[in-house]
Structures are given as structure tokens and as C-alpha cells.
Amino acid sequence: MARFSKLERTLIGLAVLSLLLSLGILIFYYFVGTVEHQLIKMVKQDREYYYNSAIYLISSADTFCRPCAKYDQLKNNPDLRIIFLVEPDFSDTDIENFRRALRIEMNDEVRRMDKAWRRLYLKLNRNRWNFYYNFLIIINRGRIEEIRRF
């Protein structure tokens, strides 16, 4: 250790620190900061509720070219909780019209995204065209089975 001067030791320390920091950022970027990780965290908070569920994140849907993907199949599964999370600016009338137009069953939930879901939606929706997609997330026994964009 004596072979290194004080300045050299400081520089080596800084290099190691920056290496660790980069590694931390990389780990965060690839594992912790991912949509999947955020989603798992949110599902874990209410595991019972989301245990077997299909979550639709809806920005803009219609009966013609953007119907709710797989809904006709999923609604026949009695063990599946179907939740529609719509944009926060949907009014009560919009939600009513949404239910009626897309024939959403009364026992399926339709509610507005809260801050956490909205943040997740925006993360999922990152695209170069600034297009607002909808997403279907299927959770099977507490695990994410499918994330589909439509």
C-alpha cells in the first residue's frame, strides 16, 4: 500500500466507486427498474386480489379496430378476476359508455388508473411514435403469464 501515493490511492478509490456505481445502475436498469419488477411489486402488495387476474390498461378502445383483446375468451373463466383500468380522465359517463359499447360484464371491474398504475402504463407504453396502446396483463397464480399490447 505504501507503494501508492495518497493521490493514487484516491484515484483508485474513485475508480472502484464509479465501477460499483455503474454496476448498481446496470443492475437497477436490467432487474429492479423493469416493468416486470414494478408489476411484480404491485401485485405482491395485494397478492390475494391479483392472484388469478387479467388486467386491461386502457387508453383508447373501440369496437371497430381496438376491441379488448381476448376478452370474449377470458370472460368465460370463472376463476379469473378481470379488471379494466382506464385513463384517469375518463368520466363516469365515459365508463358507462365503455361498459355498454364493449359489452363488459357487470361483475368485471372498470376503474380509473391510480398514480402507480398510470406510471406503469406509461413505462409499458414507451414507443417512438407516441402512440397510446392498450395492454393486457395476465397473472396466473401470482406470476405474470403474459403482457400483450393491442
Binding site: 378502445a61 373501440d62 369496437t63 371497430f64 375518463f90 368520466s91 365515459d94 359508455n97
Partner: peptide, 9 residues
Amino acid sequence: INRFRVFSP
């Protein structure tokens, strides 16, 4: 004034 969604073009 106002806007509402109709979900069926």
C-alpha cells in the same frame, strides 16, 4: 365546453 367518449366509431 365538454367531451365524452363513445367507443364505437
